[in-house]
Amino acid sequence: GSLMYASIFGNVSAIIQRLYSGTARYHTQMLRVREFIRFHQIPNPLRQRLEEYFQHAWSYTNGIDMNAVLKGFPECLQADICLHLNRSLLQHCKPFRGATKGCLRALAMKFKTTHAPPGDTLVHAGDLLTALYFISRGSIEILRGDVVVAILGKNDIFGEPLNLYARPGKSNGDVRALTYCDLHKIHRDDLLEVLDMYPEFSDHFWSSLEITFNLRDTNMIPGSPGSTELEGGFSRQRKRKLSFRRRTDKDTEQPGEVSALGPGRAGAGPSSRGRPGGPWGESPSSGPSSPESSEDEGPGRSSSPLRLVPFSSPRPPGEPPGGEPLMEDCEKSSDTCNPLSGAFSGVSNIFSFWGDSRGRQYQELPRCPAPTPSLLNIPLSSPGRRPRGDVESRLDALQRQLNRLETRLSADMATVLQLLQRQMTLVPPAYSAVTTPGPGPTSTSPLLPVSPLPTLTLDSLSQVSQFMACEELPPGAPELPQEGPTRRLSLPGQLGALTSQPLHRHGSDPGS
């Protein structure tokens, strides 16, 4: 009898404990919600809404976190579960008819179910419309201010047509639940991603989709105040780019002037030289400038040598048109050559190039014969006009050509200096018209024969001689050997007369 009593008592207590286990969990969670309300000092109306929603959600799901349970299964099984949970929507909604099984599984994985109690606001006026909503159960109302403009029910759709707008718009009203509602919502990016994977279904979906109420604000059109608020930074940046392009296009129409201050000032006329910023005076940081632009901040801005204009002085008759350009485009679109090309026009420029290279940067340069637009006047290309890779490749080509020119210049200078040193070592320090008596009659020769300089066969020296023939050397430049009979510069000019005159010897006659 005691054994029977113990078994009955144990079973009854276990049954009672299981009955009250759900209630215990409910009270535990309710205590957490109330502690949250007390800690954050939530006001009474919002506090009442929180408690009511918790009670309804507990009775609806029995305190089970559906998302946590669903995430515990593998992905393939999750797709089947989501397809079952959203079967009513996918079967009865017209846009989803005719979709393949794979497309429906992908869509079912992207849908999220939302449960809303009465009085809950789903979308506020001015919120971004980031999702498309399908009503599965219940009814909602749409308000503009305090005026109800629409009441939607089961199988209705609200949001915005995503295929017509590249960016999400703003809501033009509040969406509030009238009863307990079940909503299926899919985010904008998720829907577009699935439709991109199934393009054959995309056309059918957009053609058959009928949005019951379009929440997009109709005033959000390009150029409206609301649109400016939504895309303020983007609009200002776009206007700045367009104004920069218009100014650079105007600059290219004036090829007669070359400016070292950047493309923003290349198009300024002579009357605007004294102004601080020219056409860019209202925004000094709008356009890029070269490193020399920092010198323009000092006094005497109108007389600054940074602004270059072609000189009108005539060229000498024998002067060549100019050196070879550094870039391939210089032959086609440049009416002034790079300062480095002028360094190779003569030997005198070679000796004085490194010492006063900055001073020569603004000297007169030889002109190319074609009066085409200036290379320095070409505006900086924006990322939309020329690819970045093209600019980098041009810079690399320019750097390689500069290296080759520097190597060639160093070799030419070394060769010229070597020839000058050899000339100085071969010439005796001094010569006299009267020579010392020699031991015999073989001493009648006034000077030792001097062998002429070897013929220069280097390509670089031939180019130097060509430049010497075309360029007029300055007075202080050293002379180079030329073709024809060679003669030492330090010898007297009348050596031929010395050989014809008898030598005057000093000596005593033994017979006297």
Rank of each mutant, 00 (worst) to 15 (best):
R188T: 07
G440Q: 15
R385F: 07
L420I: 08
L498M: 09
K332L: 12
P320W: 06
A131E: 12
H184V: 13
L308P: 10
G232P: 09
V427A: 07
P474E: 09
S271N: 07
Y133T: 07
P437D: 10
L473T: 07
R394N: 08
P492G: 10
P317H: 13
Y133H: 14
S410E: 08
S465M: 07
D190T: 03
R216D: 03
V450M: 12
S348Y: 05
T436N: 12
S443G: 08
M468H: 12
P199L: 01
P339H: 11
T457N: 10
S382Y: 04
S393I: 13
Y362F: 15
D412Q: 01
A397I: 10
L409C: 06
L426N: 08
G476D: 08
F213S: 02
C181Q: 03
L143R: 11
F311G: 07
E472W: 04
D509G: 08
A177G: 02
H506K: 14
G173M: 06
M327Y: 10
R367D: 09
K154Y: 04
F351Y: 14
E297P: 05
S333W: 05
K332I: 10
K250W: 14
S462Q: 11
M468L: 08
L132G: 02
G438L: 06
Q421V: 06
A370Y: 11
G493Y: 11
L420Q: 01
T130V: 09
L375Q: 11
P379W: 01
L261G: 10
P314G: 10
P475F: 06
L365E: 09
G269F: 05
P475I: 12
P474N: 09
D174E: 09
V149R: 03
S271G: 12
L164I: 11
R238P: 07
L495E: 10
P379L: 03
P510K: 09
D156E: 03
S341M: 11
G359Y: 08
S235Y: 12
P449Y: 12
P321T: 04
G126V: 03
T407R: 10
D146R: 07
D174N: 07
L402H: 04
F134Q: 01
P288D: 01
A131Y: 09
A497D: 14
E479K: 09
H204L: 07
S227I: 09
P325S: 13
P369K: 09
L215I: 03
E479W: 08
R408W: 04
C470D: 12
G281Y: 05
R246Y: 09
Q401P: 13
N155K: 07
L129H: 03
R388N: 04
D203I: 06
G173C: 14
L340Q: 14
Q466E: 04
P439R: 10
I151Q: 12
A397T: 06
H506Y: 08
A266L: 12
Q466M: 13
R176A: 03
L495H: 11
S500K: 08
L376E: 09
L503T: 07
S290Q: 14
L495P: 12
A497V: 12
E319T: 14
L340D: 05
G493W: 13
G507A: 09
P316G: 08
I378S: 14
S243M: 13
D329Y: 08
T455Q: 12
V347D: 07
L480A: 09
G223P: 12
R247S: 09
S271V: 13
D174Q: 15
A477W: 05
P492C: 11
Q399P: 03
G507H: 08
A177F: 02
P222H: 09
G359H: 14
P387D: 14
Q463T: 10
D296M: 11
S460E: 14
D249K: 10
E471M: 06
S382D: 15
F244G: 11
P161I: 03
R360V: 09
L376M: 10
L405A: 08
G267L: 10
G233Y: 11
T444Y: 14
Q418G: 10
E364N: 15
F244E: 14
T435M: 10
P321R: 10
F467D: 09
P284D: 12
